[in-house]
Design a protein around this nucleic acid. Structure first.
Lengths: 194, 194
DNA sequence: AATCGTGAGTAAGTATCACTCACCCGACTA
DNA sequence: TAGTCGGGTGAGTGATACTTACTCACGATT
């Protein structure tokens, strides 16, 4: 997937990733990216359609790596509920550990329509589809209530994960991912009403 | 709150709101806003610090109106659980009915640090605080499990609402808000595990 | 060993915006 | 009738995303 990338291209991707740790995407100029990468501005446009395309490719690499790591983790779990809980935990931890990844995905790309045509988004959709299938499996084998809309459950899980990570990502706070994900799992799987 | 606004300022706010129904914020130029409003570009900068400030003010008006409507609705409910369910339903419906409001709040402002200094964000924080207090009330009077972290529950609710609305907002789909919010309420309050 | 093609990179633009600034106008008021 | 002030104008300007014409190093081909 990422083999035989020209050195300049790699340097540009690395530079943007580094800069995103300190600044938000709009505040990062192409001139700054080029300077940080040690190349000229023109080279960015040799390898990327435009500035946003560069962002999407960086996100795409992160998602691909994350997708592989997540799949490996879920394969170790036996039941659907265990897999879904692992999904919540692993994803939240990924957003919090790799802040740039979380920031791009949750804050920087969604307001640009082109993102939804990108490879990054396609990978993300595939990931969500596989989680959706786990939910369906769980319903089929009696682990999960059948009268729940599987799509809404998926959205609730993803939404909970994202919103739990959001403050930490925006304000660069440290939060206890372990404790938070345990709580989310408890809320979604057991419910909060007495 | 919004009294005695000069006509030009109102026209500019209305123009942006209208344009946001068709285009995303970055794609809307100040020249286009001015043209749509029937004023000159310079006037925008008489009333707003910059283009983003204009966006924040438009959002602020929407949030203030929504906040009032929501408070009125919640006051009619007696129990904490009923209030929280009404919060989920009312908020989701607001995002779906007023797409521009949903789009600005969920997609356009969060990637700009200045938003978190704006009046709009302050109002939003106040709104979330009042919902948090309802959760705490519910715990105090035995409606809601006391071993749940109230903050995480709040985030889960908000996250579920936002993510359930997101696809509809992004792709301009119609979705059955009634059915979706009933499902979210079921998931969060009763849990999904058999 | 001369030539060709190509991938990698450069440097000097250009067009488009967001934003500024000096100014105008009419209506009050002293 | 001069002063001032809110509301509004329109011609700039600088930053910046993006383009384009070019160079250089190189391995393969003849």
């Amino acid at each position: 997937m990422t083999q035989h990338q020209p050195p300049g291209k790699i340097k540009i991707l690395k530079a943007l990733s580094l800069l995103l740790e300190q600044h938000n995407f709009n505040a990062i100029t192409t001139a700054l990216i080029a300077k940080e990468a040690g190349v000229t501005e023109g080279l960015i446009y040799k390898y990327f359609k435009d500035k946003k395309d560069l962002l999407f490719e960086l996100l795409g690499e992160n998602i691909t790596l994350f997708n592989q790591a997540l799949t490996a983790k879920l394969d170790k779990k036996d039941t659907a509920v265990e897999k879904l809980k692992a999904f919540i935990t692993t994803t939240t931890k990924a957003y919090l550990k790799n802040r740039v990844f979380g920031r791009i995905l949750l804050l920087e790309v969604r307001n640009t329509p082109e993102y939804f045509q990108s490879r990054a988004h396609a990978t993300m959709t595939a990931l969500e589809t596989s989680i959706h299938e786990i939910i369906l499996d769980g319903m089929a084998n009696g682990e999960i209530r059948k009268d729940i809309d599987s799509k809404v459950l998926l959205k609730t899980m993803v939404g909970a994960i994202e919103h739990a990570s959001l403050d930490a990502i925006i304000f660069n706070q440290e939060i206890n991912a372990q404790a938070v994900t345990r709580q989310i799992n408890e809320i979604i799987f057991k419910g909060v009403e007495v």
